[in-house]
Design a protein around this nucleic acid. Structure first.
Lengths: 349, 349
DNA sequence: TTTGCATACGTAAGCGGTTACGTAGCTACG
DNA sequence: CGTAGCTACGTAACCGCTTACGTATGCAAA
């Protein structure tokens, strides 16, 4: 490990000023070809690694955007984002940031420590992308007052002052329910919802209800069961549901994880999927196509959500006065066998 | 968005010097309780967010460690780390970094652009954790000469100058093969390997071979087939294999993804798993317990690998002269139905 | 009272880059 | 030949913190 060298060292050895070294590194003009070669050569020779901190300080731009997300594995099985989901969002964010020449810093909030972590991260970045439910509304608002912030999913269109990115939950579910109704002729559908306070969950239920009504079918005013977006919750919800009533034609779950639990619960009850009852999810996680049977679901463009998130904060970093913008991305219906379709992979929309 | 305020502003408004503000923020001593309150109050009042860049520059420590990994989704189906695997490593790294008061910056190398990306990231961090095959050996070595670097898996113990973290592939496979031999009585086992150049893959094969020899069985000198660590590769390998010979008792795959492909290929051939032929994997990805049948595999402590990685770089940042250290983590045998075991979940070791 | 030693600050010199300005040399043109 | 307009640099003033030192004040011990 060479002694950390500086731009002065490079300048001295190349017989130029630091300004010229800086220009060679980041500006396309202001130096001759010969000078450029000389500078580059000595930089390589002494293994100079420019100081990002110094550059950031001078430019008042870190070139880093932070992504805050809730940690799951940490606090047991609470109602949290699926790791598979968040990971994809992060990947998308990384991709967009790298494409823009920036980098992404990630931080998982765990329980109460979130606020301090967020503040600490905020000092190191130009803007923050916050995955739903990483932080309290108040904390998010406080951050939003200090630096560019965009909130992902479960908030899109609901917050008044911050940029947001989310998906079209209503139409996503609508397409799914229409499929169940029209292609399979199911009439008796039940909806297993996520957490009560989740806007995403509410919108999905709203889409469910609206579609049934549009088809002239009776529609419930509230979800048939609450599964809290977790596998265990989905299983529990189905068990409770079927203790009361005959199996429905189909169980529409608010997300894929609950669908996994639902399938398991149905197996316990000796009910076959989809022969006896169809099951669907929402998200299209990596595991979903491997389930038995493969899960019919509404795919969320998880990577795009992350990517749009960083694009949005970078846009705001560039122009802090731009009007607030809520991005809503489309979902895609993914037909697999759990809904009763024959073979996997047919998709729609 | 308030005007970006500085420590001078806070100092002025609190009637103290910047030194005192700095002390209040980061040192437990050097100020009275009253001063502390006053400073904290005005800081909150004007919404001051300290500049991480300035702090990093002054302290000569960014408080950030970078994680470099290969991107998969990007370049099609090349031989790359599974997203599920890398994501877990990243999670572990994030966890360890946060616990240490640092943050992690992530960057995915895609194809040839890796070298520049790595350099760019290197300017922003105190050290780098590099997931195997993100970069060429030469590039890794060059980085290692400029800042603390630790390499994860597929290298552990092999590189001479850099710290590394990996798993005990040999013993991991050995436990698995012993199980197949002793508990199930299988005698005819075949090994489907990952990429030829992969040290991880080689070690796994070595463990396979050694265990067969130890049991007094004939053992091949090279893998029966090469699957390249991908699902498609695993399927292809099995198809080619079974074109030549009778189905073996068990197919030991070099990783879980190849096992997925193997199971699919066997299904095409109307062979039942595990009734006709058992299949096993390596990694224990999130999808593996959902497969049909659930996959028996050797679990890698993916999060721990990431966590140990950042711990190792932080240790080296703290003491650059410490002797190189190679961490080798233990694996865990996960018994599920694909090997012929009755019910899921029994694990060993 | 003097001395000694904490404790609570303030001063100011960096940390390693960026960049607005200024200057010198050269070419082009009236 | 004078001058306008480039290009290729150098000078030096920041960027916003941290921290080594130095000073002042208070109090206990001598």
């Amino acid at each position: 490990m060479t002694q950390r060298s500086t731009i002065y060292e490079v300048a001295r050895r190349s017989g130029v000023s630091t300004a010229t070294v800086s220009r060679v590194m980041h500006s396309g003009t202001g130096y001759s070809a010969a000078t450029r070669e000389r500078v580059l050569a000595t930089a390589a020779e002494i293994g100079w690694l420019p100081s990002g901190s110094a550059r950031s300080l001078a430019r008042r731009r870190a070139g880093i955007v932070g992504v805050l997300f809730p940690d799951l594995g940490a606090s047991g099985d609470a109602e949290e984002e699926s790791p598979l989901y968040v990971d994809q969002v992060i990947r998308g964010a990384e991709r967009a940031a790298t494409d823009a020449g920036d980098a992404v810093l990630i931080a998982a909030t765990r329980g109460s420590s979130g606020r301090d972590l967020a503040l600490s991260v905020a000092t190191k970045v130009d803007g923050l992308v916050i995955v739903a439910r990483s932080l309290s509304e108040a904390d998010i608002a406080a951050l939003g007052a200090r630096l560019p912030v965009v909130v992902l999913s479960d908030h899109a269109g609901r917050r008044t002052s911050l940029d947001s990115v989310g998906v079209d939950n209503r139409n996503g579910i609508a397409a799914l329910v229409e499929h169940l109704l029209d292609e399979h002729g199911y009439r008796d559908l039940v909806f297993v919802a996520g957490p009560r306070q989740s806007p995403d969950s509410s919108e999905r239920f709203a889409g469910f209800r609206r579609t049934l009504l549009a088809a002239g079918l009776p529609a419930p005013t509230k979800p048939h069961a609450i599964g809290g977006f977790t596998e265990a919750g989905g299983a529990r919800a189905v068990r409770e549901l079927l203790a009361d009533r005959e199996p429905p034609d189909a169980i529409v779950c608010g997300n894929d994880e609950m669908a996994v639990g639902a399938v398991a619960a149905l197996a316990e009850l000796k009910l076959r999927v989809p022969a006896d009852v169809a099951v669907t999810g929402f998200d299209d996680l990596a595991i979903s196509r491997h389930l038995h049977p493969p899960l019919t679901t509404v795919a969320q463009p998880m990577r795009d959500i992350g990517a749009e998130g960083v694009r949005a904060v970078l846009a705001r970093v560039a122009d802090p006065t731009a009007p607030r913008h809520a991005t809503v991305l489309a979902t895609r219906l993914v037909l697999r066998r759990s809904c009763g379709c024959r073979s996997d992979g047919r998709t729609n929309r």
